[in-house]
Simulated assay, not measured.
Amino acid sequence: MLEFVDTSENMAAIGGLENLKNWLAQRRGAWDDAARNFGLDPARGVIILGVQGCGKSLCARAVAGEWKLPLVKFDTAAVFDKYIGETEKRIQQVFRVAEGLAPCVLWIDELEKVFAGSGPDSASVDAGVSSRILASFLSWMQDRKAPVFVAATCNNVTALPPELIRKGRFDELFFVDLPNQAERQQIFSIQLAKRKRNPAEFDLNQLASAAQGFSGAEIDAAVQSALYAVFANQQSLTTDALMAALAHTVPLSTTRAEEIQSLRIWAKQRAVPASGALAIAERASNLA
Rank of each mutant, 00 (worst) to 15 (best):
S8A: 15
S122F: 02
L173E: 05
K194T: 11
F95T: 10
T239D: 07
V46T: 05
V176Q: 01
A30E: 11
S130F: 05
F188R: 05
L178I: 08
V176S: 00
G213V: 04
S124I: 14
T87Q: 04
A217W: 05
D171N: 15
L134Y: 10
N198K: 10
P103M: 05
L207Y: 07
S285V: 07
A98R: 05
M141R: 03
G39F: 05
E112C: 02
L134R: 12
E9D: 14
Q261I: 08
V79P: 00
D143A: 13
P251M: 04
Q92E: 12
K56Q: 10
E110K: 11
R28I: 07
A244Y: 00
W67A: 02
F231M: 15
A152I: 04
F188T: 06
L242Y: 02
A244D: 08
I260T: 01
A274S: 06
R90E: 10
A102F: 05
L237Y: 06
M1C: 13
S122M: 05
I84V: 13
I187G: 02
W107P: 05
V97P: 00
A43K: 03
W266M: 07
W266G: 06
L287T: 10
A78N: 12
R195A: 09
C59G: 01
F175I: 02
Q234Y: 10
A78Y: 12
H248A: 13
W67L: 02
A288L: 11
F4W: 12
F38Q: 10
Y83D: 11
N205W: 04
L101P: 09
A288C: 10
K82L: 07
I133W: 02
L49N: 12
V51M: 01
Q261R: 14
A116D: 08
T76A: 15
A244V: 01
Q206V: 10
